[in-house]
Write a protein that binds this DNA or RNA. Sequence first.
DNA 1: GAGTGTGAATAGTTTCACAGCG
DNA 2: CGCTGTGAAACTATTCACACTC
Lengths: 254, 254
Amino acid sequence: MATGRTHRPATRSRGIPEATVARLPLYLRALTALSERSVPTVSSEELAAAAGVNSAKLRKDFSYLGSYGTRGVGYDVEYLVYQISRELGLTQDWPVVIVGIGNLGAALANYGGFASRGFRVAALIDADPAMAGKPVAGLPVKHTDELEAIIEENGVSIGVIATPAGAAQQVCDRLVAAGVTSILNFAPTVLSVPDGVDVRKVDLSIELQILAFHEQRKAGEESPAAPAAPARAVRGGSGGGKGPDGDVPAVMPA
Amino acid sequence: MATGRTHRPATRSRGIPEATVARLPLYLRALTALSERSVPTVSSEELAAAAGVNSAKLRKDFSYLGSYGTRGVGYDVEYLVYQISRELGLTQDWPVVIVGIGNLGAALANYGGFASRGFRVAALIDADPAMAGKPVAGLPVKHTDELEAIIEENGVSIGVIATPAGAAQQVCDRLVAAGVTSILNFAPTVLSVPDGVDVRKVDLSIELQILAFHEQRKAGEESPAAPAAPARAVRGGSGGGKGPDGDVPAVMPA
DNA sequence: GAGTGTGAATAGTTTCACAGCG
DNA sequence: CGCTGTGAAACTATTCACACTC
C-alpha cells in the first residue's frame, strides 16, 4: 500500500500553465484589496507590485485567461476579480472537511481565510472520542466513524489532513474511498493516492530546511574557500541524550 | 513604503538547482525512515518511490551533490543522510523565533518536526501582553518588546511569522532590522524585504484555491455544464463592446 | 502617450536512454 | 548483469521587447 501511485500527472489544465494557476490566488488577493478600497482600475505594473511578481509575468498570466485589459488604461478591478474567481472555481461553494483537530487542525478551523472565499468547513473530524461533540471554531467535532457519512451527505470533494504522520495515509485512503478527490496534506508524509486525486502538501519542516540551505550559503559567502571537506563529521560524541532519530554517522568521503 | 523590493533574485545556489534543493528534504525524510529500520542501502528506484518522485529525477538530483552511489548496488543510506544533511545545513543548529502565538503559532511551537532536525525554537513572541509569561509548548511567551534583544542574544537568523496579516509586514521589518535573513511567512500577505533576505510563504488559502481549480476542471470534464451566472460584475462604462477576441461573454446577466 | 498582449529569446526542469562502472 | 551517472532531447516557465490599441 505504501508504494502506490503518487506523482501528479500534471493535468493539462485547459491550457493554463500550472505556474500561472498557482499565481492566480495571489492576484485575486491583491485585487480584492483594491476592490475594497474602491480602486476602479490597475495597471499590470501596480498589480504586479502588489502581488509580488513582475509585470511581464502578470500580463503573460492574464493572457492565458483572455484579453481582459484595456490598452493604455489597465485592468478593471471588479471585472478581473470576477474572472479570476470564476477561473479558480470560487464562484461555487466548496465544502471541506478537516481531519485531525489537534493544535493545527484547530488553527485551520479558526482561520478566517477559509470561509471567506468559496470554502466552507463542512465538518471537523477527530479520532479521539474525547473530542467528539466539543465545539471548535463554532463547530462540534465529529468522530472518525462518521467520516464517510459526512462526506457523502455534504458532497465534500476537498479534504484537509491535519493528523499526525502515522495516521495520514489511512485517513487519506478513507477520504478517497468516500469520494474526496482533492487533498491538502499537512502531515509530513508522502501520500499515495489513485490517479485522478490531487494532493497538495504543506510541510513546515521542508520549508525550514530550504531556508536553512540558503542561509548556510549566505554565511559561506563571506569566508573564502573551504569547499566541503567534512572533516568534522562526528558530532555529539555519544549516542545517548539527544537524537530521537538517526544520528548523523561519522562517515567520511573516501 | 509598502512597495519595497520583493522578488527573490533566484540566488545561484552554488550550482544546485532550486528545484533540486526543494526535494532534498523529501529524500532526507525517506532516508531517515530507512535508517531507522536499519536498511543499509537503497536503489534510486526504491528511494524515489518512498519520496514520491521518479528515479531519473532523483538520480539527476543526487548528481548535483556528487557521486555518492555505487553502480550495481545503490546508495548507502547512512552516508546519504549525512551528505544531504550537510548540504542542507542541518549539521548545524538553527535557532528560530516564532512570532504570533495564536492558534497557529502554538501549533507550530508544538510541532515535533521543528526541533527534530537542526532547528531549535529559541523563543515564542507575541504582541499581547496577556500572553507574556504563559508557557506554550514548554516555553514562556515573550512580549514583542523583547524581539530585538532575543534575536541578538540567540543569534537568530530564521524567523517564523504567524501573526494576523495586518501585523506581518511590521513584524517582518523588525525581524529584518534585527538581523534575521530568512523568513517563513504564514500570514496571507506579500512581504517586502530587502535584497539578501529570503522569504518563503505558506498559504492555506492559496493551496485550497489551486485545488479548487483542478476540482472544477474534473467536474467540468463530465458534463458540458453552463458556467455560473455572475451576480453583479457590472462592467464599467467604456465602450460597451468587449473588444477584439473577446469570445468571453463580458458579463452575462442571469 | 500609456499600457496591454504576445511572439521570440532565454532560462530552468524533467525525462530519456544509454555508456560505463562495480 | 544491475544500477548509477549523465549528456542530449523535450518540455515548461520566465523575460524581453515591441507592435498595436485606446
